[in-house]
Design a protein around this nucleic acid. Structure first.
Lengths: 167, 167
DNA sequence: ACAAACTTTCAAAGTTTATTGAAAGTTTAA
DNA sequence: TTAAACTTTCAATAAACTTTGAAAGTTTGT
C-alpha cells in the first residue's frame, strides 16, 4: 500500500466511524487529516485536501475547537489561521471521554433520575418503570464514574488499568 | 410527573440516544418500551404504543433479535408472536459491549493495523502516518481488551471494577 | 479610513437514512 | 387444501442531516 492510499483509507475509516460516534463525517475527517499532518494546516489546505467547501470547513473546525481537540496556531508573518490537533492519543482519548460524559452521559443520567423518582401509585406498571429506570440510572452512573476514574489517572492509564484488572 | 409522561420521556430519551450510538430511533424505542413493560408485547401493541408502521416494527424487532437483546416469546394458545427484552441491566450492558466490540471496534483495529504497517519510504509524512496510526491502533486495541475484561467478570462487574481501580 | 485578506453565517440544495404501507410470503387450524 | 392470521419485504416517500457558496462580517497593514 502506498502513502496516498493508506492516508485516504485512514481518513475515510475515521470519517465513517465519526458518524457512528455522534460527530459528523467532515469533522472526523478534518481531525484525521490534522492528526497525520507533519505541520499545521490552513483552511485552504484542508478544503483542498478533503475536497469540501469553505463553509463546511469553517463550521467543522469550530466544532473541533469547541471539543478542545483542535487549536488555532498563529504562524508569524502569516495572515491566515493555521490549525493543529492534539497529537498524543492518550490525551485525545481523555478529552473525548470527558466531553462525551459531559454532553451525553450526564444529561441521560438526569432524565433517568427524574423518571425513576416519580411517585409510586402502587400499580404494577409504575413499579416496573421505577425499578427498571432506577437500575439503568445506577448502571449509567457507575459507568460514568468508572470512565472518569480511568481517564483521571495521569500517565499510561490504560496500561495501569489493565494491570489492575488482571486480578 | 405522571406515569404516562415519565414513560414517554424515558422512551424518547432512549430513542434519541440510540441515534447517537449508531442504532436507530425506532429500534431504541422498541427496546425501551419492552424494557419497562410488565409483560411480553405483540407487534400490534408495539405499533400502537409507539405509533409506528408495521414494516418498521418488524424490521427493527428483527435487528434487536440479531443483537441478541430481544427474544420471541411464544405464548400458548396465541397465534401472534410476542417479544421481550433482556431485563437485567448488567447482562444488557454485557451484550451491547460485546456486539459493539465485534461490529465496530475490531474492524477499525484491522484498518489501523493495515495502514500502520505500510512500507516506510523514509519520507517525513510517511513516518508520521505510521507513527500516529500505530499509536491509535495500540490505544484502540487496549481499550477493546479492557472493555472485554470488564464485561467478562461474571457478577457485579462494575462494582468490582470500581473497587479495583480506586487503588 | 480604506481595502485586501481572510473567516463566518445561513438559506437553499443535495444527500443519506428512516419510514410507510401494500403486496408477497409464511404458518396454522380445520 | 384452503383460508384466515400473521409477518416480512421493498419500492416509494418522507424526514433528517450535511454541504454549499455567496453575502456579511472581521481583522490587519498602510
Amino acid at each position: 500500500m502506498e502513502y496516498q492510499e493508506a492516508k485516504d483509507k485512514f481518513i475515510n475509516t475515521w470519517g465513517s466511524l465519526g458518524t457512528l460516534w455522534g460527530i459528523n463525517k467532515a469533522m472526523a475527517q478534518i481531525q484525521a487529516l490534522l492528526f497525520i499532518s507533519t505541520k499545521p494546516l490552513s483552511m485552504e489546505e484542508i478544503m483542498e485536501d478533503l475536497q469540501i467547501s469553505r463553509g463546511n470547513t469553517s463550521m467543522n473546525l469550530r466544532q473541533l475547537m469547541d471539543w478542545g481537540i483542535v487549536t488555532k496556531e498563529l504562524i508569524p508573518g502569516e495572515r491566515k489561521d493555521f490549525f493543529t490537533t492534539e497529537k498524543d492519543v492518550e490525551e485525545l482519548a481523555r478529552i473525548v471521554a470527558k466531553e462525551r460524559s459531559r454532553r451525553e452521559i450526564k444529561p441521560v443520567i438526569k432524565v433517568l433520575s427524574d423518571v425513576s423518582s416519580i411517585k409510586d401509585d402502587g400499580s404494577e406498571k409504575t413499579k416496573e418503570l421505577i425499578k427498571q429506570t432506577k437500575a439503568l440510572k445506577e448502571l449509567t452512573d457507575n459507568l460514568d464514574v468508572l470512565m472518569n476514574k480511568l481517564v483521571d489517572q495521569k500517565q499510561n492509564w490504560i496500561t495501569k488499568s489493565l494491570l489492575k484488572l488482571i486480578k
